[in-house]
């Protein structure tokens, strides 16, 4: 295994009485693209902010690029590119001016050339003179990513970079993330989209400020020990509605013409299917998918709290 870009142990953070990060331990090897997943309020943004020194952890320890999270946060900032969840550039400045400002703060050598190169790379050259506030969602994300990588950081922290962006722009954005990765950058990217999670080499799943599971997509799917059945035929909506309330059923949902049923206990699922008495449905067992696993985890978390 490579050296670890992120290595934190038992990290804790509270805001007043509200515990947001409750003993988080996670590792991200250098050079990997790591998907950072979890429901809303699970602590993803707080973790990212602690990693880049914007928030001070209440407890625990960790390193980022081999530097101590608490004592070396100034040095960490120089080697990390952080893309905030909310667009955070100056709307009244142009694309070029925003990039120049960021570049100067990082004291990027050969600024003019570096800015030109990054604008070329992200297709921003034609929009150099456009005020940032006039860019559409997808282009704003590009500008934000360009500003993040201008100082050639070793680690990119991207907080829901593709929220609210159309499918084509999302795909292009992920192509760019893979390009960055090919250049040797480590990427930690939080997302709610399953297709994006599947493009990651590694997944870290958070719930209630704790790590639930980490590993490759396959590892995560297998470690969940989920059993999944699929059915087609008339009346799948009605069947799904009834199945949801039966014992042993974690999820039952309709995707187009298919009904997907998942749970941890194969026998219980079979009993549930038999009790339906819907002879029109044709059932078969299938491989669980990442989204089955996550929905099951989210449900279990809700049931637990």
């Amino acid at each position: 295994m490579n050296a670890l870009a992120i290595d934190v142990h038992d990290l804790r953070k509270s805001f007043g009485a509200r515990v947001v990060i409750d003993g988080l331990t996670m590792q991200v090897p250098e050079g990997e693209i790591c998907g950072f997943l979890g429901g809303n309020g699970s602590g993803k943004t707080t973790t990212i902010r602690m990693l880049c020194g914007l928030l001070r952890p209440d407890g625990g320890s960790g390193t980022c690029l081999g530097l101590d999270l608490i004592h070396d946060s100034a040095s960490i900032r120089l080697q990390v590119g952080y893309m905030t969840q909310r667009f955070s550039f100056y709307g009244d400045l142009t694309v070029l001016e925003n990039l120049e400002f960021v570049g100067r703060l990082y004291r990027v050598p050969g600024l003019a050339g570096a800015v030109r190169a990054v604008m070329q790379r992200f297709g921003l050259a034609d929009r150099a003179g456009q005020p940032a506030q006039e860019l559409s969602g997808g282009w704003k994300q590009r500008l934000a990513l360009a500003a993040c990588v201008l100082h050639r950081p070793r680690l990119l922290l991207l907080d829901e970079p593709t929220a609210g962006v159309d499918a084509k722009a999302r795909r292009e954005f992920w192509d760019m993330i893979h390009e960055m990765s090919a250049d040797g950058m480590t990427v930690l990217v939080s997302t709610h989209y399953m297709d994006e999670a599947e493009r990651c080499q590694r997944i870290v799943y958070l719930a209630g400020g704790r790590l639930v599971v980490q590993g490759s997509a396959d590892e995560v799917v297998h470690s969940a020990n989920l059993v999944t059945f699929e059915a087609t035929g008339p009346g799948i909506e009605r069947a799904a509605r009834r199945l949801r309330h039966l014992p042993g059923v974690a999820t039952a949902a309709v995707f187009g013409r298919d009904l997907r049923l998942a749970g941890l206990d194969r026998a219980a699922l079979r009993r549930a299917i038999d009790s339906l008495d819907e002879p029109g449905l044709v059932w078969k067992e299938v491989e669980p998918r990442l989204d089955d696993v996550f929905i099951q985890m989210l449900n279990r978390q809700e049931a637990g709290t």
Partner: peptide, 13 residues
């Protein structure tokens, strides 16, 4: 309020 503070803080200034 503009959300630019978070970015400014994350940068070395």
């Amino acid at each position: 309020e503009g959300g630019t503070m978070e970015n400014l803080l994350a940068m070395p200034i």
